[in-house]
Design a protein around this nucleic acid. Sequence first.
DNA 1: CAGATAAATTCACATATATGTACGTTCGCC
DNA 2: GGCGAACGTACATATATGTGAATTTATCTG
Lengths: 246, 246
Amino acid sequence: MIVRQAANVLEIMEFFAQVKKPATLAEIADHFGWPRSSTFNLLATLSEKGYLYEPRPRAGFYPTPRWLAMARMISEVEPLPQWTHTLIADLSAETGETASIVAPAGVMAVFIDVVESQAAIRYFATIGHRVPIHATASGRALLLQYSQEERDSVYRKIEFKQYGPSTPISIEAVETELRNSIARGYCQSFADYSRDLAGAAIPLPIGDRRLSVVVAGPEFRIGPKIAEVAALIARTVDRLRPKAAA
Amino acid sequence: MIVRQAANVLEIMEFFAQVKKPATLAEIADHFGWPRSSTFNLLATLSEKGYLYEPRPRAGFYPTPRWLAMARMISEVEPLPQWTHTLIADLSAETGETASIVAPAGVMAVFIDVVESQAAIRYFATIGHRVPIHATASGRALLLQYSQEERDSVYRKIEFKQYGPSTPISIEAVETELRNSIARGYCQSFADYSRDLAGAAIPLPIGDRRLSVVVAGPEFRIGPKIAEVAALIARTVDRLRPKAAA
DNA sequence: CAGATAAATTCACATATATGTACGTTCGCC
DNA sequence: GGCGAACGTACATATATGTGAATTTATCTG
């Protein structure tokens, strides 16, 4: 069950992150198609908790810096090492595609750092974006780091759907693809989940954290050179990863 | 009306900001005294939206960097000028008390930047903290920047409560205190709102934004030297504020 | 490795909550 | 400066939602 008002809080914040200026009750209500009275209650709640204020009279609400203060506290714990950001920045620069660091979240894989391609046609992904762990290159690069038992436990929860023509729709299919990935030396996906999207990924264990790096873009651009891209990822990781670490 | 699940989202995030490590469903549920099933729904919603993930298997949930990414986007709009932070840092260092930048939010005043005192006994305030605009030094320093009509409009919404012995409990009382403040050259409060708390504040208009600076601490420490503190605030603002600006 | 224990998940129902409607206030326009 | 329209606010009611109990899944213990 989805908790509507919890989701609405997030929606409101994303709204402010987009428009980047104060908004009145009416504007927010209209934007989301919410009733005024409901919007009123929500804004009142957020204000009361110290997360919204009125920068100038009658110009509407805007988030207080409290969000930032809290996000900083949360994120200063085990931040990703600096070199991982350099990694995807370099990869994105060299390939012209979108590069990301990905982490597991149950049956999904979450993007926890992203450097976007500058191309007009590109893979549009944001931090927090989620994709099925079994039907994506990045996800399978995570699964490769699991034990057989852990994978089985994940499989049990997966609802296999035919997202595209090549989506693996059974445990067998996924396991086979994992074996192929090992043989190949990298994980790949050709529109297994998102239409027209291809990507190459490799596992990126850091300490006891299981992450992966992925470079993804339109099939027609990535497809022909996927092996090269994968090799580039591997080389770049070798270059940037501190040698001391396990 | 308070929107419970909206507030809960904030509570959860504050929880993570405090404990700074992943937490399982059970831990979160127990911490707040929420039913497991409700907690499940909330966590599922936050996860689905890409705000929580599972850093390592079976170690529970933790917020994704998405919070940070969003908070940054929101806060890069009209950030407070750098010198305002220097201002309160200097004030806190020199006085040994807590110094803050404050902004209006309806009938309340919100702390939008805070540098805390290092003293054992101190004014504990955080960014986002809210106090009544009419019953605090910082709030009245905001009201001083309003026109008479604007103030009247605020007064109409205020619910006058006797927070302490010296709380102004009428429009008259507030207006009188404002006049005294002008004569005095600064705003002050002696436990008008918070017990044992005294503070000195002055208006701090920046562009078309109406802000104030306040230094606050225990009555027994601040009380005797409140005039000095106020003078120090004024001098420090003069020193740090760029001369070019209006 | 099996049994026990704890955690996670599902589901149907009672209840807390979102909202339609109505009222008061503020603002823009002539 | 007064009128009209838009905005913000309160409240009662129907309804979406939180929750206790039951089920399944995972983890610990001997």
